[in-house]
Simulated scan of single mutants.
Amino acid sequence: MSAPSSAPAFSSVVSRLRAAGCVFAEDEARLLLSCAHSPAELAAMVDRRVAGLPLEHVLGWAEFAGLRVAVDPGVFVPRRRTEFLVERAVALARPGAVVVDLCCGSGALGAALSCAVAGVDLYAADVDPAAVHCARRNVPAERVFEGDLYEPLPAGLAGRVEVLLANVPYVPSGEIALLPAEAREYEARVALDGGADGLDVLRRVTAGASRWLAPGGHLLFETSERQAPSAVETVARSGLVPSVAVSQELYATVVTATRPLG
Rank of each mutant, 00 (worst) to 15 (best):
E63F: 01
E63I: 01
E63A: 14
A65H: 15
A65G: 14
G66M: 08
G66A: 04
L67I: 01
V71H: 02
D72A: 15
P73D: 03
P73H: 04
G74K: 03
G74L: 02
V75M: 06
V75W: 09
V75S: 02
V75N: 08
F76N: 07
V77M: 05
V77W: 05
P78A: 02
P78V: 02
R79T: 11
R80A: 15
R80G: 00
R81L: 12
R81A: 12
T82M: 03
E83V: 01
F84L: 05
L85W: 02
V86N: 10
V86T: 08
V86C: 02
R88C: 15
R88F: 02
R88S: 13
R88P: 04
A89Q: 10
A91C: 05
A91W: 07
A93R: 10
A93M: 04
A93S: 13
A93D: 08
R94P: 01
R94N: 09
P95H: 05
G96P: 14
V99W: 06
V99T: 13
D101K: 11
L102S: 11
L102T: 11
C103K: 10
C103R: 09
C103M: 07
C103T: 02
C104N: 10
C104Y: 05
S106N: 04
S106A: 12
G107Y: 06
G107T: 05
G107P: 12
G107D: 10
A108E: 13
A108M: 09
A108R: 12
A108L: 08
L109P: 06
L109H: 14
G110P: 09
A111F: 03
A111V: 04
A111K: 13
A111E: 10
A111P: 13
S114K: 13
S114I: 00
C115V: 05
C115Y: 08
A116C: 10
A116L: 11
A116Y: 09
V117M: 06
A118I: 02
